[in-house]
Design a protein around this nucleic acid. Sequence first.
DNA 1: GCCCTTGTGGCACAACGTGCCACTATGTCA
DNA 2: TGACATAGTGGCACGTTGTGCCACAAGGGC
Lengths: 223, 223
Amino acid sequence: MDRTAPAQAAPAQAAPAQSLTARRKAATQLEIARAAAVLFTEHGADQVTAEAIAASAGVSLRTFYRYFRTKEDAVGPLLAGGADAWQQALAATTGDPIAAIPAVIEAQLTPRDDLAREGLRWTRGLLRAAVDDPALLTVWHRVNHDSESRLQRIIAGLAGDAADDFEVRLAATAATDAVRIGLEAWAAGAGPDTGPGSPADLATRAFAQLSRGIALVPEPTGG
Amino acid sequence: MDRTAPAQAAPAQAAPAQSLTARRKAATQLEIARAAAVLFTEHGADQVTAEAIAASAGVSLRTFYRYFRTKEDAVGPLLAGGADAWQQALAATTGDPIAAIPAVIEAQLTPRDDLAREGLRWTRGLLRAAVDDPALLTVWHRVNHDSESRLQRIIAGLAGDAADDFEVRLAATAATDAVRIGLEAWAAGAGPDTGPGSPADLATRAFAQLSRGIALVPEPTGG
DNA sequence: GCCCTTGTGGCACAACGTGCCACTATGTCA
DNA sequence: TGACATAGTGGCACGTTGTGCCACAAGGGC
């Protein structure tokens, strides 16, 4: 098994139907992630040993390190949450990515079922803990960095060769930061899952403001 | 001595005139930082032990950990570079922070002497190494996060009570990201230290686009 | 000179993260 | 069903990380 890929690409939700081994692996990874999240939020990341996480998840220490590169990385899948979801949704759109992003964010950050709502609860708890926990903050930064990198490639693909690299980069940053700030502001307060004050609401508002000066294709000035 | 403060607040350049002890401390910290930067860029961060850095800097391993919390943090002061400088310059301005930021960035990111140029060289080398070095990338993320936090407080102070917290947050993020992207894009290419393609040029361009939708005070709609 | 503060080095130690080997379970083919 | 290749798991050893503790030496004030 490769260790980095599932931590970033695997959805925190259960995978549909695959081989028995694959399903067990996904389940184990999620089990470890949740055990780590519970222990981290309860005692602080630096007070929790990797062995404690492994024991709580019912695996050996050696196996723990086969799933995650570091102790803190264990909560990566929970923090990544729906990042992959809305990026894949964006990749499936056509036309101007800047114009498509708000609707995609709105749709993908709004929880549509209990599974999504549960995912938001994990994210909120972890983000609140991460505010004053350098180790967890590092994971959050890494998750957002990975998100920005993927987004940059997606937007570049959508915008085509005419798009300026610097503008593509700005667009990817604006979108990533919008979602990041939306989630952070929501987690810090007592906002609802949907409607005004929700992650989807805050993120779309943030993106509207950050992206107003960005145009992926050169403006047709005159000609 | 406290360990975190100098790593973030101390300029990478030599301090003017203080007590002998204070100057020795600053020199030692800079010595360690440069030793770490050289070794990291040469062999990759994960191939360099903390002991090797300490030996290269002429201090014991124990002393190394009194200056920096982790092995990677050693390059923090070099990556932070002039971040404090331009933020302090911003704090000294009056009026609308959004309007003041471009000039401050332009002025502070443009190297005015050999010391500043040398600082830019370190930053470029480290950023190039950080692209494919997760450990160094983490330091870069932390540096930018700290920068964003401080900037948020500065902008809030300048904007006054009328300013919306969410807008202040967006402004701080836009400014931090502008500088970050400017430096990253410059480091990745072969841009000059000044003029078109310089960090100052790229950062101000980025901020102009990211900040166009941000207004710190409620628009006087109608009266 | 004395004294207090502060930086430094050495040592021990818990925890981190990995390489290696053996064991077991899954899935396939005969 | 039995044999086999594949892949996940656990145990162990080991180098490295980062910290607590104590002793020692070098500024700085009296």
